[in-house]
């Protein structure tokens, strides 16, 4: 008989709509953390505000639910000072690409070792159905009754253009692949983005489970994730066919690789050195 292992990570009761794509993402996250044999007290899950951003509430790891759009800055800082933590940001497309767009750009540049899982349902859920940065042009909502007049953002293209070292796309309806992508993203040394397509049953009647199911396909071994132009080309594929998998993976120097004074004892464990401070004061004479 195969050994049945009690999962370390447990899930709590959620406030999500029945059938929400967030459930699949949460299950995959739990499976990924268990597979990696991480300890709950060494995992920090960070969210902003939104339905996806409630994820830290529903899994027994450390959780930080901050402000709308501001999930990345505290996540990055926590990793900088307490690197023993595995830091994972789980939050939505509005949080990551809209309100927090500037942090998205600069978190990629910073390349701190965190994983960023964007629950991308192409709509605002918590505020009941307005266009998100990834909503298709022309898609009708209560606030965009003539159809969204703006171009949708392509987060994968943007991340690649900004120099992200790990760029992947998952789908809440393909849990095995999503778990694999999460494991690889967490293992990756550096900032890792997984944009996760998910249906919003309540507010996005266009990009439904069936809509995605009909279009998504898994990238196979013919795709070379170390090739940036190939990745850029796959990142542009959208419409009839939508690729899932690791589009790009190449390690780059971490933020901390440029700061040797932070190597060794983590900042959270350091004690002040009176001699150093005395020397600074002596310099004032």
């Amino acid at each position: 008989m195969p050994e049945v292992r009690e999962p370390r990570f447990k899930l709590g009761e959620t406030a999500w709509c029945p059938g929400c794509g967030d459930f699949g993402i949460l299950e995959s996250l739990r499976a990924a953390l268990d597979e990696l044999e991480l300890e709950p007290h060494r995992v920090l899950v960070v969210g902003g505000i939104g339905q996806a951003a409630k994820t830290p509430q529903y899994i027994n790891a450390n959780g930080f639910c901050g402000l709308h759009g501001r999930a990345l800055p505290p996540a990055v800082a926590a990793k900088m000072v307490n690197p023993a933590l595995t830091v994972i940001v789980n939050t939505g497309d509005g949080d990551s690409y809209g309100e927090g767009g500037n942090h998205f750009l600069h978190t990629i540049r910073r390349n701190v070792d965190i994983a960023h899982f964007v629950h991308d349902n192409q709509i605002y859920g918590l505020t009941k159905g307005q266009a998100s940065p990834t909503t298709a042009t022309g898609q009708v909502t209560h606030v965009q009754p003539s159809g969204s007049p703006s171009l949708p953002m392509n987060p994968l293209m943007l991340a690649l253009a900004m120099g992200a070292g790990f760029v992947a796309r998952g789908f809440s309806g393909d849990r095995d692949l999503l778990t694999h992508l999460m494991i690889e993203a967490i293992r990756f040394r550096g900032y890792a983005l997984v944009d996760i397509l998910q249906p919003c049953l309540s507010f996005n009647k266009i990009n439904t489970f069936a809509w995605y199911k009909k279009r998504v396909y898994r990238l196979d071994e013919t795709h070379d994730p170390s090739d940036l132009s190939g990745a850029l080309s796959k990142a542009q594929e959208w419409g009839e066919r939508i690729p899932l998998g690791i589009l790009y993976r190449r390690e780059k120097p971490l933020w901390s690789d440029h700061l040797p004074h932070l190597a060794g004892v983590p900042l959270v464990d350091r004690q002040p050195d009176p001699a150093v401070l005395q020397a600074l004061l002596d310099d004032l004479t």
Binding site: R70, P73, A78, M80, V81, L267, D273
Partner: peptide, 30 residues
């Protein structure tokens, strides 16, 4: 003096990031 004192001095992309970073670092124990 960040090297001899062992301090992170991070120039944030904006003041919103700066304060949210400081909160994250404080939460994480420093």
């Amino acid at each position: 003096h960040m090297v001899e004192t062992g301090v992170v001095v991070e120039q944030a992309e904006d003041e919103i990031a700066a304060i949210n970073m400081a909160i994250g670092a404080s939460f994480a124990g420093v």
